Structure formats: C-alpha cells, structure tokens
Amino acid sequence: MSGPNNEFDPVEVTPLKAEEVEAMTEAALAAVAAATDLDALKQVRIEHTGDRSPLALANREIGALPPQARKDAGQRVGKARGAVNQALAARQAVLEAEHEERMLVEETVDVTVAVDRRPRGARHPLTTGAERIADVFVAMGWEIAEGPVLEAEWLNFDALNLGPDHPARTMQDTFWTDPAENHVVLRTHTSPVQARTMLTRTPPIYVACPGRVFRTDEYDATHSPMFHQVEGIAIDEGITMAHLKGTLDHFAAAMFGEGISTRFRPSFFPFTEPSAEVDLVCFVCRGTAVDADGATCRTCRGEGWIEWGGCGVMNPRVLVACGVDPERYTGFAFGMGIDRTLMFRHGVEDLRAFFEGDVRFATAFGTEI
C-alpha cells in the first residue's frame, strides 16, 4: 500500500512556478501602467484580476498541491495578486483625477459668450409697435386707455355723431352681432374708448387708445377685416388746432426719425369739426420726391408726402353726448393705423404678413421688450 507523496515538487505545476508568477505579475503591472483612461483600466482589471485571468487560474491550482506545498505557493500567488490590485487602485486614482481635471477644462461654460441658440419665437411686431407708440404718449404725460372689442352701438356710433342713417352703420363696414336687438357690434374704431373715457373722467383728459378694430373689408395686401388703430384725444381749456399739429409732429418724428413733420388736408369726419387728413413728409426722400439716384421716389410716388391718418377738433356734439361742457372745454382727436405705420416704418409691402403667424417674419423685427 502506497503512502503519501512527501517528495512532490510544486515547481512541476507550471502556473505556480516562481518565474511564471513573476511573469504574470509583470505583465499585469505593465498593462495597468499602460492604461490611458478609465475604460482601458476597466479592461485591464478584467483581463488580469477576473475569474479567467492568469493569476486567478494559478490560484485555483493551489488546491491540487499537497498540504506541505500549499503555503509557499499561496504566499507567492497572493503577493502577486495583491501587488496587481494595489497598482490598479493607484492607477484608478490617477486616472480619475485626470478625468476630473479634463472635465473642468472641456466642460467649462463662459457665461459672457454670446449664445447662438435659435429662439423659440419672437414677440409680434404689432405688440412691440403698439407698446412703442404707447411709450411715446406716456412720455408726453398722456395716459393709455383700453376698452372691449364687443361694443354698444351707441358708444361706437351715436356718441360720436354717427347718426342712424350714416353709411358706416351698414353691413358693408360693420360686423353686427346676433340678436340685432342687443345693438352690439365689433368696434369699427377705438373711438368708443374715447367716449368711455369722457363719460367717466373730468377734463383735462389726455388719452391714447391703441387696440384691435373690425370692419367687413376684403382680405388682401392692403386690407384686413381685423386691424389695429391708435386714437388719441386731448380735452382741456384752450385746446386748438395748433396743439394737434404739434402733437402729431412729435409723434411722427418719434416713429420715423427727426425732421419728419406732418401736414393737414381739409376733410370731413362726423366726430370732429374742422377735420383734416394727416400726411407725413416722406421718410425716404424727405419730401424731395426723388430718391438718391434722382429717380422718382417709389415710397411716396413722387408726391413727397404719405397719407397717414385723420384728425380734427372735437365736434361739440360729441362733447355734449359724453357729458363735457363745450362752452368751457375744447379738444382734438386723431387716429392712425398701427399696421400701416409699421408697414411704412419697416418697408412691409403686404399687410397679410402681420397675420399669417410666420415666426420668421416676427423675428426680423427683434424681440425687444
């Protein structure tokens, strides 16, 4: 019967030979040192410390050795594996530090650099235009007033000296609501806001009224059934046509540049007497009727003037209807299209561009607040 093999030489198990363990260790340490980033180091960890790594396979061979040989082999392999794990930990710390430093450099955001992001949208030019006009009058000490777009017939017509037989009351110009006996219309101008103001305030009154208005016009390049107006009234003691002229000259210069003035042409409006059409000097040719090349100015068509709106001294009948004493107070009123003003100011040729909702059109006007 054979006894235990006390003469067994452990060096005959190749993976456990001292030179083999040393070679495995050196290969692992070299791979750790060569790893240039965390992903590469992760692969090295798998290859040299994983279940199928050379040192892990060598460690499994220890169990096949006789008891007297296991101690030396275990110490040899354990020392090698410890050295590799220490090298991995040290390299991990170095690479993580390098990664953080690189992130600080590569991902730094300079908040002073202008962004190049595409804006989602833009404020509508009619909105910013109305606000710009309001700022002009507020700077002169005026107030801004607003009113409903669904308006009583009396405020829209009767209070403004537009009698029952006036052509503007017909369906050709006005949107009437059902039932007709309610006498409610979509306002055809912002003048009802002026009437409401006179009915609720005591002069002196200086008020501008921007807003939407509605008329049964065709929808084309120069007309729309919904458009925007700004109207203004000034009621005080001693108000004259000269005050009206000065106000509109200042308004024109604020909108179209210094040196732009206005002129009056006799006209008729039921709510003012005397009344006038307002022309402003052409802001392109400055009234010369020719452009820089000597050709006829296309903007004013050689006239030197551009029609802008209507105005006049407040009709005493309107003052009486709205509870203002015409013996003590006088006033003036004016009205201009905001859409038309912006078309002049920015060279827009088709009114429909304001209402089609194309953000590219709105963005061209900027997004100022």
Rank of each mutant, 00 (worst) to 15 (best):
Q68D: 13
L162F: 15
V230L: 13
E98G: 13
V111N: 03
L95C: 08
L199E: 13
T288I: 05
G63M: 06
H48R: 12
F227K: 09
V320I: 12
V185Q: 05
T170C: 12
L351E: 01
D158I: 05
M336I: 15
L248I: 09
V113K: 06
V184E: 11
C322E: 04
L88W: 09
A87P: 10
L199S: 08
T190G: 00
A90N: 10
R340K: 14
V32I: 15
A83I: 12
W305T: 01
G147E: 05
G287N: 03
R169M: 09
D236K: 03
R117Q: 10
A295M: 12
S275F: 04
V21W: 02
G82H: 14
K42M: 07
D291P: 06
V348Y: 04
R360W: 00
C285F: 05
E100L: 14
I233G: 02
V32L: 11
Q229C: 06
A93C: 06
D9L: 08
L155S: 15
N85A: 01
A253K: 09
D358L: 06
A145Q: 06
N315E: 09
D339Y: 04
T341Q: 09
E106K: 14
E231A: 03
I369C: 13
F271N: 03
V320S: 14
T299V: 15
Q68C: 10
P54R: 03
M343S: 09
G63W: 04
A254Q: 15
A34F: 10
R212M: 05
T367N: 15
E12D: 07
V136C: 01
A252Q: 06
G294C: 09
S267H: 10
A90E: 15
V94H: 13
R45L: 07
A30Q: 12
N5W: 00
V230R: 02
A221T: 15
T190H: 02
R132E: 12
A364T: 00
A114V: 13
K42E: 11
A40I: 08
D39K: 13
